[in-house]
Design a protein around this nucleic acid. Structure first.
Lengths: 233, 233
DNA sequence: AAATAATTATGTTATAGAGCACAAAGGTAA
DNA sequence: TTACCTTTGTGCTCTATAACATAATTATTT
């Protein structure tokens, strides 16, 4: 664990949502409990079944939260972009992790021990409201996702995943290339399908001129059509 | 809307989790904002897209939270038993309902305007922690559910639903009959399958002496076997 | 009580998508 | 360079489950 000396300004910029509601003394306290950790590409951040210890905030990089399902098939539950918090749910629920997390690409993560967060929460309602809002949003997304993954057909699921990646990580300067380069396998795990079907459906989309593919680079050409496919399932 | 005069004791017994953390003046305030509403069997409590106004606590009866999916297929997301709170997530997420709620059987529900809850939340951290814990638990369940519904086979999904109903609503005095009598359609919507497949799989379970069925009455005979089927998918 | 509608049951058919096999391409290591 | 592994791509087969059709029951309404 790297314990880097950071100025309070640097910390404030790293974790604005958490920092902003705090009083001066609470900020001091948080600065004492702030550590930085780096993870290599594809490195596991935490595993299913482990006991949660820290709140994590992704400072840079991209992270997947996933779950090993039946027969080794893994399902990506959600993805984290920078400035997003994760790994706290299980602690609040007083249980172990039901998901695992791994780095899509090299990551810098800020860790804050959950007991420190609990102390701040007991003192600061605005902070509590931040978590209530965040958990509520995530629960709504999860409910939507359950229905989408179970009821939509392969094309609809893949289309939705592509739009979801666009909304989460955005596009490159050309305004059409997805800013995340996933393996076909990750794309399949995100869309609840086999790798072969992700490959096949992706090339179908390319043939239909909805996207172009160049290795792992995906350009969205016809977003409207993608939305339509996602909608009708 | 029935505005029944209740004693504070009666209220306290109805909504213990919400009541217990409050101070005397907060309890007074809550008692002023407490209304009771009754719903008939199968009546809709709220719809997808509506704006959330009240926190609801189920005082008696059974409720399903569901979502209309692709092609009119509906998916039961979770079920509520008495003393459980619901309908608050969307308000906290500052959006409209993404799910609908309906009564499985006649229900009595306590409604508290969300702005009143917000006021109490701002004053009372323990109350905030209650919601953080509850949302965290529900999010974990939802994540588990996503994988179970997408990856398990029909038998596994139905077995899981039966165990889930047992855990939620319990058994009758005979220690084996499920305390909830669902239609095959509801059972199917809970297990992400068609009604015909719910019927078929249910009678298969009966043939295999895992359960007995008498109309909508389901007796669990071999819980261990059910757990095994649920586990292997 | 008769009529109508809803639910449960069962058989048959059709198909989406998994599973598998294998080849080609690209990466990494020795 | 050669060897080896991982990822991507394509074709073929098989099966779980949806979709449909039609009774048989059971509720509900008139």
């Amino acid at each position: 664990m790297v314990k880097k000396e950071l100025t309070e300004t640097e910390i404030a910029e790293s974790i604005p949502d958490l920092w902003q509601p705090l009083t001066a003394s609470q900020r001091d306290f948080l600065a004492q409990n702030f550590t930085i950790q780096k993870y290599k590409k594809n490195e596991t951040i935490y595993c299913e079944g482990e006991t949660p210890m820290h709140l994590m905030c992704l400072l840079s990089g991209k992270v997947k939260i996933y779950k090993e399902g039946v027969g080794g098939r893994s399902q990506i539950i959600r993805v984290i972009k920078d400035k997003e918090y994760f790994a706290y749910r299980a602690y609040f629920a007083e249980g172990n992790f039901v998901t695992a997390a791994a780095a899509f690409e090299p990551c810098t993560i800020c860790l804050i021990p959950m007991p420190a967060i609990m102390k701040l929460l007991r003192e600061n309602n605005e902070l509590a409201m931040f978590f209530i809002r965040q958990l509520s949003i995530d629960l709504g997304i999860s409910d939507e996702r359950t229905v989408n993954l179970t009821q939509k057909h392969i094309r609809g699921r893949l289309a939705e995943s592509l739009l979801f990646l666009k909304d989460t990580y955005g596009l490159e300067e050309d305004e059409s290339t997805l800013s995340i380069y996933l393996s076909r396998e990750d794309l399949a795990n995100l869309s609840n399908m086999t790798t072969s079907n992700a490959i096949r459906t992706l090339s179908n989309f390319a043939t239909e001129k909805i996207i172009t593919i160049d290795g792992r680079k995906i350009k969205i050409i016809d977003e409207e059509k993608l939305k339509k496919i996602s909608k009708i399932g």
